[in-house]
Simulated scan of single mutants.
Amino acid sequence: MLLAPFYSTKEKQIFVSAEQASNFAKRQCFDFNPIHDPENKRFCVPGDLLFSLALHTYGVSESMSFTFTNMVGADVGLTFPDTDDETIIVTNDQGKSVLEITRKGQVNKDPEFIESLINNYGQFSGQNFPSVLMPLMKEPGGDV
């Protein structure tokens, strides 16, 4: 399974270590944003990994929107609720929302399709940092 090396589970929660998150960012998405370096004091789990975990957990619906509501640090317990609702709120171990998903339509849960989507999206998304964000950060006032 593609995502297995990048998270662990305990008591119905998902945990991502700084090393796992960084490896996902660099190996899966070719994303070298320093905020995903384990030693960075502002470290956060990549949104691409949270997105991928959501697809792995819930499948791919005909229509989906994702809103990242809070950053996730290393080793924070995440709860992906067991639900068929159209609105899903993923929370951290303090009950705060970190990701809100709205979905509609039929759901595709084919593991090969989901892994292909995760692979292709991750590689595309990871390129946003060097080709889009880095130039913006170099502009005056471009503090990301």
Rank of each mutant, 00 (worst) to 15 (best):
F43W: 11
S22Q: 02
G59Q: 12
M1F: 00
S97P: 02
G105T: 05
I118K: 02
K41H: 04
Q123A: 09
M71Q: 13
S17C: 11
I101E: 07
S116Y: 03
N33T: 03
R103Y: 03
T79L: 13
L53V: 03
I114K: 00
Y121A: 05
I35Q: 10
S8H: 03
L99A: 07
Y7L: 04
P46C: 01
V16I: 15
F66L: 11
N33F: 06
R103C: 02
V76M: 12
N70K: 15
G77R: 04
I101N: 06
S65P: 00
T87N: 12
L2W: 02
S63F: 12
K96N: 14
L136W: 08
E139I: 01
M137D: 04
M64N: 06
F24T: 10
I89T: 15
K109R: 13
N23H: 07
P111G: 06
K10H: 13
N23D: 12
G142H: 01
E62D: 14
V90H: 06
L50G: 08
L99T: 00
K104N: 12
P135F: 06
F80N: 11
E86L: 01
I88D: 04
L117E: 04
G77K: 03
I89R: 11
E39I: 08
I101M: 08
V107R: 15
F32G: 06
M134S: 02
V45E: 05
S65L: 10
S131E: 08
Q127C: 01
E139R: 14
F32W: 13
S63K: 13
P111M: 11
Y58V: 07
T57S: 15
E39M: 02
T79H: 06
D48M: 11
I101Y: 07
S8M: 03
L53C: 07
K41P: 14
Q127K: 07
P130Y: 02
A54L: 10
G77I: 05
M64E: 15
L3D: 11
K10D: 10
F124K: 05
L49A: 05
F68I: 08
S125L: 10
D143G: 07
D85E: 15
T67C: 06
T67V: 12
M134G: 00
N128A: 14
M1T: 11
H36D: 09
I101G: 04
S63M: 09
K26P: 00
N108S: 05
F24A: 08
H36E: 04
N128E: 12
I89Y: 02
Y7K: 09
V45T: 15
G73N: 05
C29W: 06
S22K: 03
